[in-house]
Amino acid sequence: MKFFKRNLPLVLVFIVGMVTLASYYVPHRASQEVYLDTMNKWVNIIAAFAFLLGLLSLFYSHYHKIKKKADGWGYSLFVYIGFLAMIIPAIVSEGQQLDGPNLTSLGWAFRFIYNTLAATMFSVLAFYIVSTAFRSFRIKSMQAFVLFLAAMVLIMGRVPLGDLLWSKILGWTGMSLADLVEWIMHVPAVAARRGIMIGIAIGAAVISLKIIFGIERQYMGKD
């Protein structure tokens, strides 16, 4: 049983990993059109089931809350209501959001419910970034000052009012705010970002090798 539980999956990940890696360098038809084509289709289908894990875990935890009548269990009902608010219209409209020029019930559910909720959830962050900027952005060192300067140039350079003020006050320098923004983004930011990129690339390649050789096994869970 240990063979099926542990060894065979490790052998499979090694074979799939090595063959896929080799396919990158082998332009032969068998490698591209047979192996990769099949794998692409298969992996795409497998991935379509992955979210079921999230779905089941969400349903399970809220079902538990309702069953135990835990604090605030009534809210958990709204998880199911939200789910049905998308699924029922989807079935009625067969997954189509538009029927010719008309909005179907699914299109309606997207536009007025899901779209609203998702967009508002993330827009709330704007309030926190402002209050954090006020409470925690402390220019205590030279490094923090440099960070502030770059941020200030970018914040001003992103809106027409910044351009206008800069040209009124600092126009005599001959350098526009847009030039300065472009320079920061194209020169020092490129150097810094490249350093980070190279680091991440080496890290990603090492982790991938560890997965292929079965050293990294977290995805397998516990025995």
Binding site: V13, L21, I46, A204, M220
Partner: peptide, 24 residues
């Protein structure tokens, strides 16, 4: 694990040459 091995092996195999070439 059988589902994961396919996705992980395939992803890792494609990632190595791609990230080394593009990001390094």
């Amino acid at each position: 694990r059988y589902g994961f091995t396919f996705v992980m092996g395939y992803g890792a195999g494609l990632a190595i040459p791609a990230v080394l070439s593009t990001d390094f």
